[in-house]
């Protein structure tokens, strides 16, 4: 059932990683990405791995979850891996058959690129595992808020993200209900040609849109009743405050970045 899909996989916890300021966490993620892309050698990449492992261990999120996050993008990794393997022709030839040639350079690039993508996904999923969607939205709003001067709608975007996060589970549940109801009226969504199946979506999509609009209207009214008037003059329940640990984290991340750059000189 669609109900089982979970969105924004967040694992509540009290670890030091959970407690970091979300803005700092975003910054750390950016530094981590820079690390991965500036790594030219496996030794450099190893420093990135070390940084990731330390963060994961501190967060208390099971390593199993890290591996789980890779699963959905496995096809992409394999596809790019194969491309790298066959189209890079530097180094010695290991294997050759008709027009296919595999070289040491190809193998190296394949492993290197695949590792990089895997590390990238693991790192960013650690961010969503340890930061609730609403805190993340909050951090994005605050990081973007200086742009308000140039009329960038930072608050509005954050508000939209919050409402979307709030209503996604509700609408998924609703879709489930409407599907059951139409199935009970004999609607057939599983068989037939593509066009027939697309047509079978109408009895689901129309009620879903009608309901979404009704909800939007009621929500807008409820927000008005609670004095909503945009971002102007708004305060927040949760203040974001940076603590010493945030600075320590940034310094550590920068140290790892320096290590990556240093290790780039070592050829493996």
């Amino acid at each position: 059932m669609i109900k089982d899909i979970t969105i924004g996989q967040f694992f509540p916890g009290k670890s030091v990683i959970h407690r970091l300021d979300p803005r700092i966490k975003l910054l750390l993620t950016v530094i981590y990405i820079v690390m991965l892309f500036s790594a030219k050698t496996f030794a450099g990449l190893a420093a990135g791995v070390a940084f990731l492992l330390v963060s994961f261990l501190l967060s208390g999120i099971p390593i199993k979850m890290m591996l789980k996050s890779i699963k959905p993008i496995l096809p992409i990794i394999i596809f790019t891996g194969i491309l790298n393997l066959f189209f890079i022709s530097t180094g010695e030839v290991i294997f050759s058959w008709k027009f296919i040639t595999v070289t040491t350079g190809g193998v190296r690039t394949m492993v290197f690129m695949a590792s990089r993508i895997i590390l990238l996904i693991c790192g960013t999923s650690l961010l969503t595992y340890t930061t609730s969607p609403i805190t993340l939205t909050d951090a994005i709003e605050r990081i973007l808020s200086p742009l308000k001067i140039i009329k960038f709608p930072a608050h509005e975007i954050a508000m939209m993200m919050t409402i979307a996060l709030r209503f996604i589970p509700t609408l998924i549940e609703e879709t489930d209900k409407i599907m059951s109801a139409q199935k009970a009226r004999g609607a057939d969504m599983e068989t037939g040609s593509l066009i027939k199946r697309a047509k079978a979506l109408i009895p689901i999509l129309i009620p879903l849109f009608v309901s979404a609009f009704r909800r939007a209207e009621e929500l807008a009214l409820a927000m008005e009743c609670r004095c909503y008037r945009g971002g102007e003059g708004r305060t927040r329940l949760k203040q974001l405050k940076t603590a010493p640990r945030d600075y320590v984290a940034v310094v550590l991340a920068l140290a790892f970045l320096a290590a990556v750059i240093f290790l780039n000189r070592v050829w493996i």
């Binding site: 209900k177 009970a184 309901s211």
Partner: peptide, 13 residues
Amino acid sequence: VGLVFQYPEHQLF
């Protein structure tokens, strides 16, 4: 077996 769900008016289309 005909099944009428809760708030069936939400399935009109």
